[in-house]
Computed example of a mutant assay.
Amino acid sequence: MLIGYARVSSLDQNLDLQIDALDKAGCDHLFTDTSSGASYDRPGLQNALSHLRSGDTLVVWRLDRLGRNLKHLIDTVDDLNCRDIGFRSLTESIDTTTSAGKLVFAIFGALAEFERGIIRERTLAGLAAARARGRKGGRRLKYSDKKIAAAMQLAAGSDDPITEVCESLGISRATYYRRQKSLHSSAAKD
């Protein structure tokens, strides 16, 4: 059974072109959405995916009608493949029920993985360059070294438990101990 899925991004767009193409392709059922491709809330797509059974084929007019991005598209088609469901894109002439279609989609998958690897490498290189210039990543410290040092002095000269010292300064025990450890390790390096 051929199950068609059509999507437009806004209410002022029209589904007629896609629906006509899906009807011409012989789709038995059609599901539609009017929402951005980036939206996670696409009830028409969810209905189409839940309607599909082993041996069925999901048909779209173009690849960009199905996936939010290349990774989402590949993940969706991989999920279909695991469920023994085919996928066809009419405009790009991709049909994963054929050997050639499977090859094309495998190439897409390899390109997506390559792209993720390149992004990761660039990110790591950028972080290394920032560290070389003396910058640290992550969130800025909420409490200064002076405040933690004051808490340490207060705790050392007081019978109050650490919890009360931390409460009086407005910091958590975890923050106190973590920053105390970093102050001791940086003082040991100097």
Results as ranks from 00 to 15, higher is better:
78 D>K: 14
78 D>F: 11
80 L>N: 03
81 N>Q: 12
82 C>T: 15
83 R>M: 05
85 I>G: 00
85 I>M: 02
85 I>E: 00
86 G>Q: 03
87 F>N: 00
88 R>Y: 07
88 R>C: 06
89 S>V: 04
89 S>L: 07
89 S>H: 09
91 T>M: 09
92 E>Q: 09
92 E>C: 01
93 S>D: 12
94 I>S: 01
94 I>F: 01
95 D>A: 06
95 D>L: 10
97 T>L: 05
97 T>K: 08
98 T>I: 07
99 S>E: 13
102 K>S: 04
103 L>K: 10
104 V>F: 06
104 V>L: 12
105 F>Q: 00
105 F>K: 00
106 A>S: 15
106 A>V: 11
111 L>V: 13
113 E>D: 09
113 E>T: 08
115 E>I: 15
119 I>D: 08
120 R>Q: 15
120 R>T: 15
124 L>M: 15
127 L>Y: 08
130 A>I: 08
131 R>V: 04
132 A>N: 12
132 A>K: 14
136 K>N: 13
136 K>P: 02
137 G>V: 10
138 G>M: 11
138 G>H: 11
139 R>A: 08
139 R>T: 05
140 R>I: 03
140 R>F: 06
141 L>W: 05
141 L>M: 05
141 L>S: 09
142 K>D: 14
143 Y>H: 11
143 Y>Q: 08
143 Y>T: 03
145 D>F: 12
146 K>L: 15
146 K>P: 02
146 K>T: 13
147 K>G: 07
149 A>I: 15
151 A>V: 04
151 A>P: 02
154 L>G: 10
154 L>Q: 13
155 A>T: 05
155 A>H: 12
157 G>L: 00
157 G>V: 00
159 D>K: 11
160 D>A: 09
160 D>P: 01
161 P>L: 12
161 P>M: 13
161 P>D: 14
161 P>K: 15
165 V>N: 01
165 V>M: 04
167 E>F: 06
170 G>K: 07
171 I>T: 06
172 S>R: 04
174 A>V: 09
175 T>D: 07
176 Y>V: 04
176 Y>D: 03
178 R>E: 02
179 R>E: 00
181 K>Y: 04
183 L>F: 02
